[in-house]
């Protein structure tokens, strides 16, 4: 009888504890602050270590196109490698980014040369910082989070996450990130210069489940008032986790990246 009483007294407590434990992971990943949203966006857009294939398309005002295919490897928050697979004129070129450092390896030149984030190895609207994208947290601080009146795909209002560059070496001084709360993904990012001038707008489209828990937009489009009527598109494919030794993300290894496909 005593045991039954104890059990009946304990049962609600056990249920409460179980419910608490069950909801804990959800509450741990629920975002309420600007910093938490920034971390969540990074987690979804850029898994800690992965490989992927990307197609970059530069579209001119007359509709003519130029396409590039890249094989990309990423490790941690700030190491990215991209290898050009196509077109033939670019095949074998590789770019490496480690934090603020960027190098370009051209087979004919045969050694990595330092490049800057504002240059573009492909031409078009995407610059090197866009092509060799590292985690937003690496380069930006979350400033504030505002709920807008603009509705997302599921009817909820979009959030605007404002980011400020940590240093002057970052390609854009400010980012205005419009976030779909249900998709937990940016829909639009506006890149703004220190002068307040809009440099470019990035549009995130076509959410895709790549498997292994990777679900993110598979298309990023961009346009810029600096390049009237030009557009660039980046399409992601075969994104999957891949663990590699840190030595791969060094300039000495750049000439051998194609062997890792």
């Amino acid at each position: 009888m005593k045991n039954q009483l104890l059990l009946s007294l304990k049962r609600p407590s056990i249920i409460l504890i179980l419910l608490t434990l069950l909801t804990l992971p959800l509450s741990a990943f629920a975002q309420s602050t600007a910093q938490e949203w920034l971390e969540a966006i990074d987690r979804d857009l850029n898994p800690p270590q992965y490989e992927s294939y990307r197609k970059l398309i530069n579209i001119e005002p007359d509709g003519s196109k130029k396409e590039f295919v890249l094989f990309t490897l990423k490790q941690g928050r700030e190491k990215v490698i991209s290898l050009f697979l196509s077109p033939a004129s670019e095949k074998g070129r590789a770019t490496l980014r480690v934090g603020e450092n960027m190098w370009l390896y051209i087979p004919n030149v045969g050694r990595p040369i330092r490049i800057t984030s504002l240059q573009s190895v492909t031409g078009g609207v995407f610059n090197n910082a866009d092509i060799l994208k590292v985690d937003y947290q690496t380069e930006y601080d979350a400033i504030d989070l505002v709920e807008t009146q603009q509705q997302g795909s599921t009817g909820k209002n979009l959030l605007q996450l404002n980011l400020k560059a940590k240093t002057g070496a970052v390609a854009y001084d400010k980012l205005e990130m419009m976030i779909d709360q249900d998709l937990k993904s940016p829909v639009i990012i506006r890149a703004v210069a220190a002068s307040g001038m809009l440099i470019k707008t990035l549009y995130f489209k076509n959410i895709k489940d790549f498997g292994n828990g990777i679900k993110r937009p598979s298309v990023v489009e961009t346009d810029s008032p600096l390049y009237q009527d030009y557009k660039s598109i980046m399409i992601f494919a075969k994104m999957k986790p891949r663990d590699l030794p840190p030595a791969v993300f060094t300039t000495d290894y750049l000439g051998r990246i194609e062997t890792l496909r």
Partner: peptide, 10 residues
């Protein structure tokens, strides 16, 4: 040696 002093200066 080689170094990037800023996003547009090496």
């Amino acid at each position: 040696f080689a170094s990037n002093l800023s996003s547009n200066f090496e």
